[in-house]
Design a protein around this nucleic acid. Structure first.
Lengths: 248, 248
DNA sequence: CGCCCTTTTGATGTTACTCAACGGTGGTGG
DNA sequence: CCACCACCGTTGAGTAACATCAAAAGGGCG
């Protein structure tokens, strides 16, 4: 009988790797103390489901390490990923009692969970959590809109290039490196998960990755390990504006 | 020399048609008074551009009447709508100085604008605006994710049916009617705008609307006036779960 | 080694795009 | 008043891109 999910020991928020980026980023000492009272950690193995759409959800959480996905499924089984949660990203919605999406751990995952009711009360009582959550939600909305452009208007090749660029950038951000020159990282998603992200089939994903490899845009070592010799070239392939919005 | 945009007289927030739904919904009398100090109205004619992506934006605003769209454009001209703002919806992002998207009035439009700096200050000083804005932003994020499923996985026919259902629902909400039985309303978008919303070409939009008409799912009177004889049938065509999430 | 799972590659099919022509409508000016 | 034009929408024919169906090739693990 395998342990489906694991509760692990509490840690000091001061040592937390996402302390400065998560929903608690702006908290003062007293707010942090209050959060510590209502928090607990949970671990999931790669592939495990965190929660099903429609299930009761009595917590909200921050991703500490690992990656989780949000997906929607239609009655006939068509699936679309609608969220990709990396360390420091927030899961759940204050004021809602059930999950709106399927949440899955795509890698081993550790989350810092807060019991929902106390968390909501703390949000009403102190400003910094709500402020930070608003900021993070606005960022997510921007990301969702970028994603909509990808889904609606980009070609399969552009979609793949865009996804690889997004992952490369996020990976660089988490490791505090500027995405310049050659980049090396692992794809955290299977071909099928990439397909769900991009609104493609896994066969098309595989073919387009092969094509980008053939054309020297990416270098693959195994199925997951990627080297980007020229990030600007990748951005061109992604159809993104080459300049990062820096006029003068 | 046509007047490109018009400033119109101030109105009392108490009389405002979106008073109970907009970002100011939760405000107390004193907060409302503060908002009145920094607000001004602006009108745009159908087709006018409110702001271009990248332009400096020194205000945030609520849509009072009319409809505005947010669109992204790629270098080669491919366009994707990423937001549809109806009355009470919020435009702009506190903490950002430039517009991230092209904003266009698709109908005659009246917006209640707030100078950005004072608005941000008020947000920091009082809780209710930030709380309401968070709630609205989370709703928008949910809508964006539904939209992502549409863009990534639905067929052209399902996309059209979904869009008509969304417009019908929003229209009913604005007029405080439950979307049951026969619904009658006008499409607020041209075929091209629908195409930009749905990630299709305008020809495909036209063909699929004709097909839905032929099959009796919708009844068209002219190009814009729509009657939905059976809303549940429309939802089936849209590929949405038939039950509205009401188990027992 | 052999099995299972993921990924790749190939052959064929279908959807929606592209290019093109035409119809309706409202506004403008002769 | 009517001719003309611009704009929006519809419809048709041919095509390109991606999906589907099918089979085989890695790769990890017992």
């Amino acid at each position: 009988m395998p342990m489906q999910e694991m509760q692990i020991a509490h840690h000091d928020c001061g040592d937390c790797p996402i302390r400065h980026r998560a929903v608690c980023a702006r908290c003062e000492a007293d707010e942090l103390t209050a959060l510590e009272q209502m928090k607990y950690y949970r671990s999931y193995q790669a592939g495990q489901t965190v929660i099903w759409s429609g299930d009761r959800m009595d917590f909200v959480a921050s991703v500490v390490t690992g990656i989780a996905t949000l997906t929607q499924t239609m009655e006939d089984g068509r699936r679309q990923m609608v969220g990709l949660l990396l360390p420091s990203d927030f899961l759940g919605r204050p004021g809602r009692t059930t999950a709106a999406y399927d949440v899955t751990a795509t890698t081993d995952l550790v989350m810092c969970c807060f019991r929902k009711k106390p968390f909501e009360d703390l949000m009403l009582a102190t400003p910094h959590i709500g402020q930070r959550l608003l900021e993070m939600t606005l960022d997510e909305l921007d990301a969702a809109r970028e994603w909509m452009l990808l889904l609606g208007r980009k070609t399969a090749r552009e979609k793949i290039a865009s996804l690889i660029a997004i992952i490369a950038r996020r990976d660089a951000t988490l490791r505090l490196k500027a995405p310049k020159g050659a980049l090396v990282f692992d794809l955290p998603l299977t071909r099928e998960e990439m397909a769900d992200y991009l609104g493609l089939t896994l066969e098309t994903v595989s073919r387009q990755i092969s094509a980008l490899k053939r054309d020297g845009v990416i270098v693959l070592d195994g199925k997951r390990h990627v080297t980007i010799p020229d990030f600007d070239r990748l951005l061109e392939e992604a159809g993104d504006d080459s300049d990062g919005g820096m006029p003068g």
